[in-house]
Simulated assay, not measured.
Amino acid sequence: MARAPRSTAKKPRLRALPGRASPVSAAAPAPARTRVRDADAEATLAYARGVLEAEARAILGVTERLGDAFLHALHLVRECTGQVVVTGMGKAGHIGQKLSSTLASTGVRSVFLHPAEAVHGDLGRVGPGDVILALSNSGSTEELLRLLPLFKRMGTPVVALTGDAESALAKGADAVLDIGRIEEACPMGLVPTASTAALHAVGDALAMTLLRSRPFGRDDYALLHPGGKLGRSVLRVFELMRTGRANPLVLDTARLSQAVVVMTNTPGRPGAACVVDKDGMLEGIFTDGDLRRLVEKGHQDFEVPVRQVMGKRPRCITPETLVLTAAAQMRELKVDQLPVVDVEGRAVGLLDVQDLLAAKFV
């Protein structure tokens, strides 16, 4: 079948239409444009600043209201032998969940109770010795008011955090933390903003004052935050080091071949073996690096005593050494293992760089 002859007509050149970029110039980066604030932008920023100022005023206004009622509420929470049960609906409920979380993170047993779920079985979370913290700006939240007689029947004291000291919630509580009437930072004056900021701040004031009055320090806080930066900063070597069967020990009278077997067969496959005397006192360390250097020098006698080829007087750490300090020593010495010894010099463990990697220290 014959092919159609190829057209020899020239294709017309593309010309940019007025106001449009040409195909070539379209790929070029657009020149940077200087952003100039207009009057509307300035008004927007002014309003946003006004929201922050309104919330700040609400919080500062509550400071003048703290008095005997706060001390009473603090006493109830401090003397609590059970757990602090925090409850609230809507936005106040979200603030309550944060308050419960803050209490728990500072060593106070606490749980959040959803008021609507409480009447469907979750009231079983409340027990003898508990204290209730009930949050409601209006003090008239129906779901909370329904629980007051039940709390009273259970003999559980109630601390109300509210904006109305004359509300039904306040009248049914054993202690009232009144934030007062607060104008919301909202164009309609309806959305909980300044009031929730004040509730949040009062809850923090209660939690932090309670913390100040109890024996609870940085180590206690870190224990409850093992995954955080602070938790890692106070972690001790004994919490990570390899012990028992995972601690590679070999007698100083053993042959080099036996040391290699220990390094190979110890659980976790550490790249080293701690060399000890008959009493378990650390004499030295033999590592994978030492083995490689021997092979590079042509050393083939694996029947020599390990004490002849081990690293003598190795840098050691104690079980109480901070892991951060141990990690810094490893980087400084450019080693992957550090023997751990007790106060008498016995080899009680080994800290391996793999342990630091697993704990995200390196």
Rank of each mutant, 00 (worst) to 15 (best):
S167I: 07
T209Q: 04
V306C: 06
K171H: 14
L76E: 01
Q337D: 14
M154E: 08
G231D: 05
D279H: 11
E143P: 04
L150A: 11
L356T: 07
K312R: 14
D68N: 09
S25Y: 03
A205E: 05
L211P: 07
A30W: 00
K152E: 15
R33F: 00
A21E: 11
P18I: 11
G50N: 05
K360G: 07
D68P: 10
L322K: 03
D130R: 06
G19T: 04
H75F: 06
P29S: 05
K91V: 07
V276D: 11
P18A: 15
A328Q: 15
G121C: 07
A194F: 09
V343N: 11
R6Q: 13
D252I: 03
V260K: 00
L169R: 01
T253G: 05
A254C: 10
A259R: 00
R146F: 11
K10V: 12
C316G: 02
L210Q: 09
S140E: 15
G349M: 00
R269D: 05
V108N: 07
R37A: 14
V261W: 01
S22Y: 00
G271C: 11
P157Y: 09
T63H: 13
S7Q: 10
E55S: 08
R313E: 14
H94E: 12
V62F: 14
S138D: 00
P314K: 03
A27V: 10
V343T: 12
A207D: 06
L99F: 14
D279V: 02
L190K: 02
H72L: 15
R232F: 10
G271L: 11
R212H: 11
S233R: 12
V111S: 08
L150D: 00
T253K: 03
R346H: 15
Y47E: 09
A92S: 15
G180I: 02
A9W: 13
R346M: 04
G155I: 10
V260M: 13
M281F: 15
R346F: 06
L71Q: 11
A185L: 08
M330I: 07
A207V: 04
G284M: 09
E42M: 12
A48Q: 12
I179G: 10
G90W: 02
P5T: 11
T156R: 13
T63W: 13
G231H: 06
G231L: 10
G50L: 01
A207C: 13
G88T: 04
P157I: 05
D164I: 06
V51H: 02
T141Q: 01
Q83T: 09
F70L: 14
K11S: 13
A69L: 03
S105V: 07
L148M: 15
E283Q: 15
A273Y: 05
R13I: 14
T102Y: 02
A207T: 07
R214N: 08
L199V: 10
R242T: 00
I317Q: 02
G50V: 03
E166R: 09
N265R: 15
R20L: 15
Q354T: 11
E303F: 13
G121D: 09
T287W: 05
P29F: 01
R346S: 07
M89P: 01
A254Y: 11
G227S: 10
V295F: 08
V131I: 03
H225R: 05
A69F: 04
R153L: 13
L235C: 14
P29R: 06
V304E: 02
A205N: 05
P5K: 15
T287G: 10
E303H: 14
P149Q: 09
S233M: 12
R212C: 02
K297Y: 09
